[in-house]
Deep mutational scan, measured.
Amino acid sequence: MQIFVKGLTGKTTTLEVEPSDTIENVKAKIQDKTGLPPDQQRLIFAGKQLEDGRTLSDYNIQKESTLHIVWR
Rank of each mutant, 00 (worst) to 15 (best):
G35T: 03
K11F: 14
V26P: 00
G47K: 05
Q40C: 10
V17M: 03
S57K: 12
K11N: 12
T34G: 04
F45V: 03
I44V: 11
G10I: 13
S57N: 10
D39G: 12
D39P: 07
S20F: 11
D52N: 11
K33V: 11
I23M: 03
N25E: 14
V17A: 04
Y59Q: 03
G7T: 13
E24I: 10
R72Y: 14
E16T: 13
A28C: 07
I44E: 09
T12G: 06
Q31G: 08
Q2K: 13
D52M: 05
I23P: 02
I3Q: 01
K29S: 04
T34K: 03
V26D: 00
Q40D: 07
E64F: 14
V17L: 04
P19H: 06
W71N: 09
A46N: 15
E24C: 06
E24T: 07
V17D: 00
R42A: 10
L15R: 00
T34S: 06
I30R: 01
Y59S: 02
D39Y: 11
Q31K: 11
I44W: 15
T55C: 05
V26Y: 00
A46K: 15
T12W: 10
K33F: 11
D52P: 07
L15P: 00
L50E: 00
Q41A: 09
T9P: 12
D21H: 05
Y59K: 00
I23V: 09
T9D: 15
L36C: 07
T22K: 08
A28K: 15
T34C: 07
I61G: 00
G53A: 08
E16D: 12
E16Q: 11
Y59P: 00
D52E: 10
I69G: 03
E18M: 14
L56G: 00
S65H: 06
H68I: 14
T22E: 03
V17I: 04
Q2C: 07
D52S: 07
K33T: 07
V70F: 13
T34D: 03
V26T: 04
A46W: 08
D58Q: 07
E24W: 15
K48G: 05
F45M: 04
E64Q: 09
T9F: 15
I30Y: 12
S20T: 13
T13S: 08
Q62P: 08
N25K: 14
T13G: 04
S57E: 11
S20P: 02
K63V: 07
D21T: 08
T66G: 02
P37N: 09
F4M: 05
N60M: 08
Q62N: 09
D21V: 03
V5P: 01
N60F: 07
E24D: 08
I61A: 01
V17E: 00
A46E: 15
T12F: 11
Q2L: 15
T9H: 15
F4T: 05
L43H: 01
I23T: 04
T22H: 05
Q2E: 08
D58N: 04
G53N: 11
Q62D: 08
L67K: 00
E18V: 12
P37G: 06
L56K: 00
Q49Y: 12
P19C: 05
T55V: 06
I30F: 08
N25W: 10
L50S: 00
D58R: 02
I30V: 05
A28Q: 14
R72W: 13
I44D: 04
Q49V: 15
N60H: 10
G10M: 09
I69E: 03
T14Y: 07
